[in-house]
């Protein structure tokens, strides 16, 4: 059980890192495009600041949103896995992608079509975040779970 929690937390960290840094990159790429002085120091500083502030200073902690999303998605995937023959890494990848898709799709519905995560304002940005969820899910599904054999699927 403890190992499962560890695996879940690592997948949560993976998804959160990818989501946060994508927002950082979105902002900095635009700033660079209008000739603002974006150098490596600014990039690293902005990334570090966002990793802390998006999980502590905002109206909602991004890691909390992703936590809830992945938890629901992975529990659902586990139930589906009982009678599904889909390999677990792929099943959980789909679940992780669905979790992030739900977050980026449902949030605007709750806030007047506003995308509160800046990196999710474009279709490409939303797609990237879904892929981030899939990567986190793939990681989770690639590790043995309670009741599984030691075989890596």
């Amino acid at each position: 059980m403890i190992k499962q929690i560890q695996t879940f937390l690592i997948s949560l960290i993976i998804a959160t890192f990818l989501v946060v840094t994508q927002t950082t990159a979105t902002n900095l790429i635009w700033l660079q495009s209008i000739n603002m002085p974006v150098d490596m120091q600014v990039v690293l500083s902005a990334m570090a600041t966002d990793l802390v502030d998006m999980n502590s200073r905002g109206a909602f902690p991004v890691i909390g949103l992703i936590f809830v999303g992945l938890l629901i998605a992975f529990i659902t995937a586990r139930i589906i896995a009982i009678w599904s023959s889909i390999k677990k890494p792929y099943l959980y990848a789909l679940a992780g992608g669905a979790a992030l898709l739900a977050i980026v799709a449902l949030m605007p519905l709750a806030f007047y079509n506003l995308d509160l995560i800046a990196g999710a304002r474009t279709v490409a940005g939303k797609a990237y975040l879904v892929v981030a969820g899939m990567i986190a899910g793939y990681y989770f599904g690639s590790h043995p779970q309670q009741g599984d054999s030691n075989e890596i699927h």
Binding site: L31, M54, A59, L116
Partner: peptide, 20 residues
């Protein structure tokens, strides 16, 4: 939003710059 003293509602930095 190239310069601002605020941060996004998500907590994200909108811009690291406050002047230009």
């Amino acid at each position: 939003p190239a310069i601002t003293y605020g941060v996004d509602y998500s907590g994200a930095m909108i811009s690291p710059f406050t002047e230009h």
